[in-house]
Each structure stands twice: as C-alpha cells, then as structure tokens.
Simulated assay, not measured.
Amino acid sequence: MKPSLRTSRFAALGAGGVVSVALLTGCGDDGTGGTGNADASASPGQQQRSPAQVVQATNKKTTQARTARIKLATTVAAGGDSETITGSGVLDLQDGTSRMRMGQGGRQLEQRIVNQVLYQKPPEASGQLPAGKTWMKIDLQRLNASQGTGGPAMSDPASSFAYTKSLSEKDVRKVGDESVNGVSTTHYRVDLDLSKLAGGDSAQERKLRAQLGDSVPVDLWIDEDGLTRRQQIRMTVKDTAQSGGAGASARQAQAKVVMDFSGFGTDVDVAAPPRSDTVDVTDKVSRQSGTSSRTG
C-alpha cells in the first residue's frame, strides 16, 4: 500500500498528535468538583448530577479501574483524500504505559509507551531504521521540553484531566442514550476550552490553537457505572512545520480519533525494548514538528 502523498504527513500528525490529545483528555487527575443544576435523567437511587458533574466523575472512576483494553481509529482528511490508522492493545489508565499494534491496510507496526518514552517498531524492510536496529525511540518529555510544551498535561496522562475541575455547565451537554459495543451508555459532548487546558499560560494556549485549531469537541460515552466506554475527538491539524509558521499559509487537515475502552482491570505488562535494538529519533522528530512551537 502506498499512502497518499497529500495526506501521509497529516496521517502521521494524526496518529501522533491526535493520540496524545486522546490520552490528554481520557485519563488522569481525580478531581471531581463541579457545579450546575441536577440532571433529572440520572438513574433512580443515585445522586442526581448535572452533565458536567458526570463528566468530571468519569475521570476518577475510569482511572480507578487502572487498566483497560483499547481500540483506536484515527482518520485524517485533507484535500479530498483521507487515511485511517487503526490499532488495538492495552493501556495503563494511571501512568500511560501501553502496548498497541497499529497500522493501515496490511502495513502494521508495534508501539509501546514505557516511562514516558514511546517506542515504535516499523514493518520489516521499511527502510526507516539503521542496520541492526528494529525500534525507534521518542522521549516524550524531552520532545515536549524542546518545543516548549513540557507541562505535565502534555506529557503525563496521570495528571492530564485536571481541566475538568473547572468545567461549567455551558461546556458539557447530554446528547442521549446509546449502545457502545453492546454496553448501554449515555453520550455527552464537551467543548474543550483550550485556555483552561493551557492553565492560564497564554503562550501555551497560542501553541495549542496553532496545532489543534480553535474548536476541539470531545464526545464521551459513559456507562451506568461511570466508566468511559468510548471517546471521540475532532480537531483541525495544522502542518505548520512544513509551511514554516502558524499563519494562514499552514496546510490543514481534519482529524478524528475514536478510542474504545473495555476489559477494565486487564493485565498490562509492558517492557521497553533492549537498548541495543533502538535508535533515538527524538531530535529528528523535534526538528520536523517543532517549527510551530518555536513561532508565535
């Protein structure tokens, strides 16, 4: 399979940047504060809660499940073309450790995240690695620091959902009752506030808007136990590294990532590959994707 030349880079941005945002909004801080009117449709016998309070509570309950199986589908569309990358594996909901197989068509790669380091094993004969190496390594903390996005929300899934503590009722609405993989859930939509996500850091907010666009709707499907069963994120991915800045000339693509969670409590036993088998490409990735972070 030969990927479209128009969208292959955007697919890479989607698989990397969008997944990081999925983790960013999917698990972490256990704050459960909230305000607003009670949700009259709450289950009998349970404390009535507003949509914002339900979304805040699902973070704590899902994280307390510790681990889960995950299925991922990322679609990136640009210039009339689209590409979809799918994956499945296991995820530690508390520290972000994960193991997944991801790919497009018949081309698959293995991905691991251990101690904030991402490892990817490309298909054999891909020509992406030096002789004798089978894994590429990206230090996520170092990458974030080099691009000025080193706050915990961008690197540590275990502390990344803190913005929910400041959700207001205008940020969340109930869509309706729906079934996800045979499980009854309630669908909620969150309008992600990038200023809150940036924690009041105006420079960080500008970088997030340059990379993700101004509107980032997040959809959550929450079961009767308060666990997140599906999460969907839509955003505008800006390829500012290729255009040389974050202005109007930056090429854009529409990205959607859907993450399904099941098998809560499953074993997650993931180890980093042997150092002798890896090559560190953190600096290369930083040079390729960091232009937008150094501008503005």
Rank of each mutant, 00 (worst) to 15 (best):
P130W: 01
Q104L: 13
S82D: 07
G132V: 09
I85K: 07
V172H: 09
S155C: 08
G150F: 07
K170M: 13
E83L: 08
M100N: 09
D171F: 08
L93V: 05
K174Y: 14
Y119Q: 02
Q111S: 14
M100K: 12
K133D: 04
Q108P: 01
M154P: 05
N144H: 14
R112V: 08
S168P: 10
D139E: 13
R142A: 10
Q141A: 15
T97A: 08
R173E: 06
G150H: 01
P157M: 08
Q111E: 11
P152Y: 03
R142P: 01
M102R: 15
Q147L: 05
P157Y: 00
V172G: 00
D95H: 14
P130E: 02
Y163V: 12
K174V: 00
T97Y: 03
T86A: 10
A131G: 10
T97V: 04
E124F: 11
V114E: 14
R112L: 12
G127D: 12
R99S: 00
P157T: 03
E124Y: 07
G89R: 12
N115M: 08
D81L: 07
G132D: 06
G127C: 13
M136K: 04
V117N: 05
K137Y: 14
L109W: 06
A158H: 04
G87V: 04
G89H: 07
K165N: 13
A153E: 10
